[in-house]
Design a protein around this nucleic acid. Structure first.
Length: 119
DNA sequence: AAATTGACCTCGG
DNA sequence: GCCGAGGCCAATT
């Protein structure tokens, strides 16, 4: 295969990581939630959970990525502020059957979906 | 170009 | 067992 054109300038390194986050987020089943760390860990960046959040920030415009199903480790809708409107995220979760009270997901452990555990 | 922030998590005292 | 600070990688200003 073309082995010579490995132009790995820092432009492409990392972008793949974002796409990977979208892939996992897209795999999140209906009525289920996960955390940034879980996805990061699945991608091999357990310590870079923050990047997952940044990836979601870039997801603005990608409706294929259910960012509303992604919350922090505590099950709190930390990023609901980044969504359109104020309770859009909560509304979406409730619309899927997820009970969200005070920006906190109820039965979070029960609804938690681990990519490593399922995949 | 450098410094700061950012949708977090993990470790230490 | 609870609280605080640091770390991570990248984007933004």
């Amino acid at each position: 295969m073309g082995v010579k054109d490995n132009d790995n300038t820092k432009s492409e390194s990392g972008t793949n990581f974002f796409e990977r986050v979208y892939e996992v987020a897209r795999l999140i089943p209906y009525g289920r939630v996960t955390s940034y760390g879980a996805i990061a860990k699945y991608l091999g960046a357990a310590r870079s959970a923050r990047m997952v959040g940044w990836a979601m920030n870039a997801c603005d415009g990608r409706e294929d990525v259910p960012a509303h199903r992604v919350v922090n480790r505590k099950g709190i809708l930390t990023g609901k502020h980044h969504f359109q409107g104020t309770n859009l995220m909560q509304q979406l979760l409730e619309s899927e059957g997820v009970q969200v009270i005070d920006n906190q997901i109820q039965n979070f452990e029960q609804l938690f979906w681990d990519p490593m555990q399922e995949l």
